[in-house]
Amino acid sequence: MAGQSDAQASTFSAAELEFLAEDELIEIVPNLRMDPLNLICGDFGPFRPQIATQVPIWLAVALKKRGKCAIRPPDWMSVEKLTQVLEAERDAEKFQPLPFHYVEISRLLFDHARDDIPDIYMVRSLIEDIKDVRFHKIGTGLEIISKERTYALRLKNLSAMEANIVRPFVTRALETFYKLSSPDMIQDSDSVQNRQHQTVNRGPRRQLKDR
């Protein structure tokens, strides 16, 4: 009937997420002299040798590729900070706060600014570990959907890439449970009578689970 199955359940492609992440600001130290840039996405510069300035990542990468600047990795990308995050991530059930685009940003910097990141191997493996721990948590965390009646899910501190990866599964699962818990909804009618049915129907379902 109405509503075909959604072919592109994962709304954004990895490339599109990277595109979004490239707009995040980062500090660079230019080695050239250049007038301020008045771009559509904002005004940046002026650029003076050895004087740090903030630019979007795409701009930083473009300059870096031409050897015109050094990129200063953000604070959260230091070995010290990442070690803390990893420990906390392992200890606590909650997700640690990290930048929304941490996966994409770290990837961009690993690809284009290797020589600007101190202890790059350490940093890289820490981020990999953090990613692994978080994905494991996401996996176990999702069990909650089947355990109790869930109408809404709060995904506190989940990053863009993580949310995008779980999106097809989570949205489908929630949708299915939502429909199962109110069979009348499928028939597409929302009279008052039906709504009463729904509440009645929810009762026995929960008991079934408890057994």
Binding site: Y151, A152, L153, R154, L155, K156, N157, L158, A163, V170, T171, L174, E175, Y178, D190, R195, Q198, T199
Partner: peptide
Amino acid sequence: QLDDSGEETVNIEADDLYALP
């Protein structure tokens, strides 16, 4: 409020992600 009957509510905090209908 999530549904018309007002049974289900969710607290929407700033800058948090939610999966909602």
